[in-house]
Amino acid sequence: LVRYRTISKIPQITLNFVDLKGDPFLASPTSDREIIAPKIKERTHNVTEKVTQVLSLGADVLPEYKLQAPRIHRWTILHYSPFKAVWDWLILLLVIYTAVFTPYSAAFLLKETEEGPPATECGYACQPLAVVDLIVDIMFIVDILINFRTTYVNANEEVVSHPGRIAVHYFKGWFLIDMVAAIPFDLLIFGSGSEELIGLLKTARLLRLVRVARKLDRYSEYGAAVLFLLMCTFALIAHWLACIWYAIGNMEQPHMDSRIGWLHNLGDQIGKPYNSSGLGGPSIKDKYVTALYFTFSSLTSVGFGNVSPNTNSEKIFSICVMLIGSLMYASIFGNVSAIIQRLYSGTARYHTQMLRVREFIRFHQIPNPLRQRLEEYFQHAWSYTNGIDMNAVLKGFPECLQADICLHLNRSLLQHCKPFRGATKGCLRALAMKFKTTHAPPGDTLVHAGDLLTALYFISRGSIEILRGDVVVAILGKNDIFGEPLNLYARPGKSNGDVRALTYCDLHKIHR
């Protein structure tokens, strides 16, 4: 019993810090008490220290592992850092350059016999395009090294910054494609005289377009951006097909006994025919423009016929181009109408809503002055909100995010209106959640004399007048207030005048 009563005193000691020596009952000389009392004092002292730490809000209350900052290894790049964003855009520009100039170089340097010394005699450094290609190869190699040090988000939505895990993730992902696209074939085969082989191998750079397509997928929600990307894709495919079309004609031209190829026909049409040795002929500019003209006309199913396939190889390629053109029509131009419709969806919704308003007016036989006010209010409210119901949009977000959005939407009023000066951010967040926005066209009466005042109004834009009878008592403008002081009276009061809008007004109100 003594032991039980001794232990039962522990909660009292913990909360009230009572010393055991003052209790005459606990001072009985028993061996059990002498053993338990020192333990009680020690526990009391420890609990006292913990309570003191909690009340003082000291940093040592938290466990040590929670006080440590997340460790980022040296030379690790955050995937959302500004440097990584700028670097990704730079790589994107280099990939676009590669997609345009690599097929052009591979096709127009394929057994090209233009006048001038061969590239091997001039030297590697004197070729501007080769120098640019070398810079692109170096940048792609540097990009691989950067990807080995860039964080990523795993399946659990955690940012991984450990170098080993980053390397394994990159090896399992895009490393092989990036490595093949970054191989400097110019340096590996330079001086061997195989410019045709170098041009063909350099087309491996186009593998990076797969990554670019995935990154550009984030802009699919913007109709104008999608339309622009589709047109660029169409032009890029036409450019690639033009390079292939020229390569076919250029390879067949020296081996044909009869002059029936499209390059021969082009030379005869523009007065620059090929001679018996295969030299001469149109310039590279004429060849490229004509090839691009043929691919565009074939892809769009126009086909004027002034550039036509004559050999079997050219006919087979033309059939493939027609098939590609039909697929592009289905996948690209078939979506253009939907994209344009999405661009004008706001206008369509406006006309639909206006039609419903006019049908309501016609069905209920609203008189002319009231009908005009109804239409003007709808037009003004639509121009202010673009038909978007803010309350319906915010309803799907958590309250903390709703408060931040409301604070942002009402920031101008909260910053410049005098009653809100000096208020804490928590108070402003709470008030912003209570605001209701209303609009009024010129001549609209917001409050009639004798109406119950259940709200306090803040003028965000425009001006109003307060009338008693036919006498203008006051004219209020931006950041002015009218209405009933909230919670100042037990019952809502009545208006002693009319409140009429002089201009288009936007008002925020808080109800009782």
Results as ranks from 00 to 15, higher is better:
S331K: 02
A224Y: 14
A125D: 01
H73E: 12
I144Y: 01
M231Q: 07
G278F: 01
F378V: 11
S331M: 10
W262K: 03
A432P: 02
A107W: 01
E252T: 03
L200K: 03
F234L: 13
F360C: 02
F333I: 10
P70N: 11
I183Y: 03
P398D: 03
I270R: 01
N368P: 11
P369Y: 01
L428N: 03
P128H: 03
D268M: 13
A330V: 02
H448Y: 14
L229K: 01
S283M: 01
T233W: 09
I340H: 01
Q372W: 03
E314S: 01
G278W: 01
Y344E: 05
D257C: 01
L187V: 13
V168H: 11
L197Q: 01
F171M: 14
V160D: 08
K434Q: 04
Y377Q: 10
L394T: 03
F420A: 01
D444H: 04
A69M: 04
A330R: 08
G193R: 13
N154F: 05
A130K: 15
V321T: 02
M390R: 07
A432C: 12
R356V: 06
F360K: 01
A392D: 13
S331G: 08
Q341Y: 04
F435T: 06
A125S: 14
R421Y: 06
E112T: 09
V226L: 12
F304L: 01
A338L: 13
S192K: 11
A107E: 01
V95T: 07
L431Q: 03
N312H: 01
R214M: 03
I366C: 01
V289Y: 01
L94M: 14
L409D: 02
R259G: 15
K425N: 05
K272W: 01
A330E: 01
H264C: 03
Q372G: 10
M433R: 11
V302R: 03
V160F: 01
Q127T: 03
L201C: 04
P128Q: 03
V159A: 01
D286F: 01
H448D: 02
N306V: 01
I189Y: 11
E196K: 14
F190Q: 12
I284S: 01
I141Q: 01
A225R: 05
I91E: 01
R421G: 09
F333S: 03
G396H: 06
F228P: 03
A235I: 11
C417I: 07
D143K: 01
I361M: 08
R71H: 08
Y246K: 01
L227P: 03
N250E: 15
A330K: 07
V136P: 01
L134T: 03
K287L: 03
D404A: 03
V132E: 01
I361K: 01
V180N: 01
F360D: 01
L266R: 01
L401T: 03
H364V: 02
V142M: 07
D257T: 08
W240V: 01
L94S: 13
A430W: 08
L110I: 03
E158I: 09
G305L: 01
G346W: 03
W87M: 01
S331W: 12
Y344W: 05
A155E: 14
C243F: 01
L206A: 04
P273R: 01
V180Y: 01
A125G: 08
K425I: 06
E64C: 07
M179A: 15
V212C: 06
E221C: 08
M433W: 04
V321K: 01
S383I: 09
G443P: 01
L279T: 09
K272S: 01
I405C: 05
Y329W: 03
L209H: 01
A403D: 01
G249R: 01
D268Y: 05
L109R: 14
L176R: 01
G325L: 01
G123L: 05
L236F: 01
R71P: 12
S412A: 09
E157A: 14
Q253S: 11
K436D: 10
L216I: 14
L109Q: 09
M322D: 01
L401A: 03
C427Y: 01
R259P: 15
I141C: 11
G443N: 10
L93N: 01
T98A: 01
A182P: 01
I260C: 03
E314V: 01
S194W: 15
L207W: 09
L413Q: 01
T424K: 09
T311Y: 01
Q415K: 11
L93H: 01
N156F: 09
D268R: 12
V393H: 01
L355V: 10
P442F: 01
S283V: 01
P398N: 07
A291S: 04
L187N: 15
A430K: 10
T290N: 01
I166E: 01
L409H: 01
T437A: 11
Y170K: 01
L176A: 11
N391M: 09
L134W: 04
Y350S: 02
K425L: 09
H162R: 13
L263Q: 01
C126D: 01
A99I: 01
V302N: 06
D257M: 06
C406H: 15
I138E: 01
A381Y: 15
L446Q: 01
N306S: 01
I405L: 03
I339M: 04
L93D: 01
L90I: 07
Y170H: 01
P282F: 01
S331R: 03
L67W: 13
I141L: 07
T120M: 11
W75T: 04
I135N: 01
T295C: 13
V160K: 01
L323Y: 03
Q353K: 04
I405M: 01
W75C: 04
M256I: 15
L394F: 13
I332R: 03
M231K: 01
R349H: 05
L401C: 03
S283R: 01
L209M: 10
A291G: 01
G396Y: 05
I244C: 03
E115C: 07
P82N: 04
M251D: 01
F435C: 05
R259E: 06
I135H: 01
P441D: 06
F397N: 01
E112W: 13
A338I: 15
L431A: 02
V226E: 14
R358A: 04
K84Q: 04
N368F: 05
I324G: 08
Q253A: 14
S331A: 11
G173N: 09
A213L: 04
M390F: 07
N368G: 09
D257S: 11
Q353I: 01
P118A: 07
Q402R: 05
S313C: 13
I91M: 02
L206Y: 01
F420Y: 01
K425D: 13
Y329Q: 15
P163A: 13
E157K: 13
M251T: 04
I189V: 13
I244T: 01
H416F: 12
F185M: 10
A238F: 03
V142D: 01
S277D: 06
S308Y: 04
R214V: 05
S283F: 01
H380M: 04
R342S: 06
Y246V: 09
N391C: 03
V210F: 04
H79F: 01
F378G: 04
R205K: 09
A106F: 04
Q353C: 03
G116K: 09
N275A: 01
P70R: 05
L327G: 03
S283W: 01
K434C: 05
L292S: 01
S383M: 10
P254G: 12
H448G: 09
R358K: 09
H416Q: 13
W382P: 03
F83E: 09
H408T: 01
K111Q: 03
D143L: 01
G281T: 03
Y170F: 01
L67M: 14
A338T: 04
C417H: 15
H162F: 08
E375L: 11
R71W: 05
N335P: 13
D217L: 09
I77G: 01
G426E: 08
S276T: 11
L229W: 08
L78Q: 08
T113H: 11
E314P: 01
N335L: 04
S297C: 04
F175N: 01
D133Q: 15
P398F: 01
E252Y: 04
C427N: 01
